[in-house]
Design a protein around this nucleic acid. Structure first.
Lengths: 233, 233
DNA sequence: TGACAAATTATGTCTATACATAATATCATT
DNA sequence: AATGATATTATGTATAGACATAATTTGTCA
């Protein structure tokens, strides 16, 4: 059997993880001190520290100074979601990407939009409605509001060629992103755009981004019927 | 101004992150070598390494040995979701948690369920249907299949007292968890349980867990009308 | 017994160093 | 110009040591 000369922190993490999975430690149990794990596995404490930090990040254990490390009593399912730009998403699924600009105009946002952006003083935003296509079939209908204070350059972009989604993601990196998922019943207009019937259940992704505290954009993306969002790994 | 004597890796991460946000580096650009960043910020290379690893994990940059570190050309929105056990979710929202077992029986799973669990040989599973309540109002309807090979102890549990959700999460930690989100139209029976009308758009969370390759459970949780799932931070 | 101060302890973090590894660049050879 | 061996380089990772920090325990005094 192959014994690596040095133990990586991922090895340590997996060892501890397995010990928990196997029932050797159950929720609430206290794990040995990092230093003890280190000496029993014959590695440095910093290696164990890195491993335990990862387990803590993933929600499996809780660590407190002086208190030690405990298996979480109240485990959470912590999952990572990857939401690529829509063009990539379509292409990754093997579709041919298409894009249609529906409408673009500066207007006063409703209260809901201001609230989502956490803006206090009302001001005109650029509203962009667009349809993403996969193999010429409707894929996602987006209703977007862009903050012109934060992203004034958007006015110089021809949004019938490049989607706002794409331009923003390449040119306005964000420091904070809020996501929200829910289901809606399609209204007449939405159903029409997405090629379905009014009343159909549709999956919605809402995303709002900021640079520090400055709002960039908020978008409500209504997906075509049957759309599913999966976790990455 | 307060200058901390030593720079933490999170400080380094934020500094680099800010440099990217400010447009100093745009997608595709190559960042300086870790060692150079280290000397320019006056910290150790390992500190920079830890920072860059985090930026790489969060999808903002890409690192390749010898190739160096580049700002990702194709940024993804990477978000972390926390899905607590349902009792906690209800309580965190300020509701009083309640639970009703609807039905519990061993039966042959349909093909869809077998596929979700990645099982090849058909065998009887324990099917548990239950309703979670918040302040005596329906909150979530779950339809669960449990693999008796992996979790035989579940048969000794009185599932009218403790929910399968809770027992499994405390007693069967998983090594892999797949999540899936989508929208459905309520059928008559579902609408009835959730106190809404047939045809209502409902948000669905599907979760399947394994210990290594051994399937534990798959559950389809249909949420009450208006339910929204938010990202954690 | 209670309140507060001090010692203890386990995790948190940075540093300097050494070596590993993968990808690229260089250079000699044909 | 194509090939293949070799050197170079940037990241990946572990280690020992030092010190920081927070939480608990212990000790002291009223």
């Amino acid at each position: 059997m192959t014994v690596r000369s040095r133990l990586s922190w991922k090895d340590v993490r997996d060892t501890v993880h397995d010990a928990i999975l196997s029932g050797q430690y159950v929720p609430g149990d206290r794990l040995p001190r990092d230093a003890d794990i280190a000496s029993s596995l014959n590695c440095a404490r910093s290696t164990v520290q890195r491993a335990m930090q990862d387990l803590s990040d993933s929600g499996l254990v809780e660590r407190r100074r002086k208190g030690g490390t405990h298996v979480r009593l109240d485990p959470v399912t912590r999952a990572t979601l990857d939401i690529p730009i829509t063009r990539r998403e379509v292409e990754q699924k093997g579709g041919r990407y298409g894009y249609q600009l529906i409408r673009q105009q500066q207007q006063t946002p409703p209260h809901k939009v201001l609230a989502a952006l956490e803006m206090t003083t009302p001001q005109d935003l650029l509203r962009v409605e667009a349809l993403h296509l996969s193999d010429c079939q409707p894929y996602m209908l987006e209703d977007r509001w862009i903050c012109l204070d934060t992203a004034p350059e958007i006015l110089d972009i021809d949004l019938s060629v490049q989607s706002a989604n794409e331009w923003l993601v390449l040119n306005k990196p964000y420091s904070r992103c809020d996501l929200r998922f829910y289901a809606i019943s399609a209204d007449e207009k939405t159903a029409d755009f997405l090629g379905t019937n009014a009343g159909a259940a549709l999956f919605v992704i809402e995303r709002t981004t900021w640079i520090e505290t400055a709002p960039i954009t908020t978008v409500r993306a209504i997906t075509r019927p049957g759309y599913q969002l999966l976790t990455s790994s």
